[in-house]
């Protein structure tokens, strides 16, 4: 055997061993990681409760990886089953997250229903105090029939200047809209916000959208399905009066509720 050949052989051997040690290290690390994941899901009672099968499979895959790690040359298989085990653990964790969220949501939904009733009652009471009972005036709601459909306009006075929150003086209109939508379950609405032309364009657009959204929020809070409501901010476009006068600007600052026809057909947004 020549010296050159010996050197070459030892290089090859050390490379091979080095390679083995490397993959051994990787598979050991994978095994450790899988073991740690499994340990933590196994000890979590919520995970066990929501995804028992995934936890069992995580354990089975881990046991398989463990067994294989005793055999020479099985590093790839060890890594594979360790990977599967980790995946099962991760799936179990996500499932328990989902279950906990659903449990919390069920509780909150009851609270929301309770608040909805209370809110409706409070709004009715405030109307009685204002001496404007819901009744025949219902029909006299300030609606206009236009080529875009039936429209109710909420004027500027129902909002604080520069703010999006609806004032209590809007209660009458809001309750009527809710009642109308409950009597006409197939109708849907588009709520459009507008501003006057003073101030920054982008800010106006944002304010008009925020005010329209505030109206939509109140309607959903009072029990209108949010799927029936769309919201759009149109800023200072489509003025209904001259922006030159104070009065005209006040008229342009408004929220319009556009109703669909009885079958839910709503014209294109402008």
């Amino acid at each position: 055997m020549s010296k050159g050949y010996q050197v070459a052989l030892s290089v090859v051997l050390s490379l091979a061993l080095g390679g083995c040690a490397g993959s051994q290290q990787a598979s050991n690390a994978a095994l450790e990681a899988a073991r740690a994941s499994f340990q933590s899901v196994k000890e979590n009672s919520n995970v066990l409760r929501s995804a028992p099968k995934d936890v069992i499979r995580a354990g089975e895959s881990l046991a398989r990886a463990d067994r294989l790690s005793n055999y020479w040359g099985s590093e790839a298989d060890v890594e594979h089953y360790a990977y599967l085990s980790q995946r099962y653990s991760a799936i179990a964790v996500q499932k328990s997250e989902l279950m906990l969220n659903q449990e919390r949501e069920a509780k909150l939904e009851l609270e929301r229903q309770r608040l909805q009733l209370a809110l409706r009652e409070a709004k009715m009471l405030s109307l009685q105090e204002q001496g404007s009972m819901l009744g025949d005036q219902m029909i006299s709601l300030a609606t206009t029939q236009t080529d875009r459909g039936l429209i109710i306009t909420l004027g500027d006075v129902l909002f604080d200047a520069g703010h999006a929150d609806l004032k209590a003086s809007a209660n009458r209109t809001v309750l009527k809209v809710v009642q109308f939508l409950q009597l006409n379950p197939r109708r849907i609405v588009r709520i459009e916000g507008y501003t006057d032309s003073s101030g920054d364009d982008a800010q106006n657009l944002e304010l008009s959208r925020a005010r329209a959204q505030a109206v939509a929020d109140v309607l959903t809070d009072l029990g209108v399905d949010s799927k029936r409501i769309s919201v759009k901010g149109l800023g200072e476009s489509f003025p209904v009066a001259e922006n030159a006068s104070f009065k005209g600007r006040a008229q342009n600052r408004r929220v319009e509720i556009v109703f669909s026809d009885e079958l839910g057909g709503l014209g294109e947004s402008r």
């Binding site: 939904e109 809110l119 959903t220």
Partner: peptide, 15 residues
């Protein structure tokens, strides 16, 4: 839903 509940509580308070 949490956001909604907070909003409703706030409204009830101001109402």
């Amino acid at each position: 839903i949490n956001k909604r509940i907070n909003r409703m509580r706030q409204q009830l308070g101001s109402q």
